[in-house]
Amino acid sequence: MIKKLPVANISLRFIRVWSRNLTVYKKIWLVNFLVPLFEPLLYLAAFGVGLSTFIEKVPYHGKDLPYLDFIAPALIAITIMYNAFFENTYASFVRMYYQKTFDAIMATPLSLEDVITGEIVWGATKALIATVIMLAVISLFGLVSYPEGLLILPLAFLGGLFFGTVGMSFTGVIPSVDMFNLPIFLFITPMFLFSGTFFPVSGLPQWAQTLSTVFPLTHLVDLSRALCQGNLQPGLLWSVLYLMLSTAVCFPLALILMRRRLIQ
């Protein structure tokens, strides 16, 4: 039997899986909208009103940035990461393991790779929808510069794809749903804290700074912040490239791990 590359099994029918998830999402759209709508308000209230009385300015590319301007783009980046990662871990795992939704779909003309691709693209879409809502809220506070800020939308999709492929790779190997705590503790939480989200990386020791450049979230935060500030520089392309390459590595990995898990 000739071994085909996993990506060779993908067809456009993956859109059917995406649209299945959209159908379900639309059923409780209001609940789905509330979180990205109010979460930034909570963060901005806590950090903006509470914390910014202690921290007025943060150094950013040789300028001093008001603290709200500093963290607002990071909140967007974190939302992208959370939405895609949680969708392709917990939510995908429930559909795969408890609901057997993947099993049912695989008995139709769709391949396993179609299903997984549809799930990942859906995770990125969910990250994009949340970003649209959040961007609108943050814009009301005058924290986003336009038109550069619009580029955050394709960025949200790219970031969503990346964190979705990482999440799906974990879904491919995790024995039980409770075990997701581990990758969250080891992977998501350190990034949440040390990717230049709530304080600049430059305040950390050198080794930690180096480590943080490996974190994909650091690059997502940098890009989001630059776009919100309207401060586009050629060096940002490295961050885009880094996210793209990481996605290009993790996507086939997710396909391989899921095939190993589900096809016996």
Binding site: R20, Q99, K100, T101, D103, A107, T108
Partner: peptide, 29 residues
């Protein structure tokens, strides 16, 4: 597979969807 109808051993209906939607969403596949 496009010409097969399969009833697997486990009931893997889509619990996120209604009875009619289960058929409609499946038809999309």
């Amino acid at each position: 597979k496009s010409r097969l109808g399969v009833c697997q051993q486990e009931n893997n209906l889509d619990p996120d969807l209604s009875v009619l939607e289960n058929l409609q969403v499946f038809a999309r596949y």
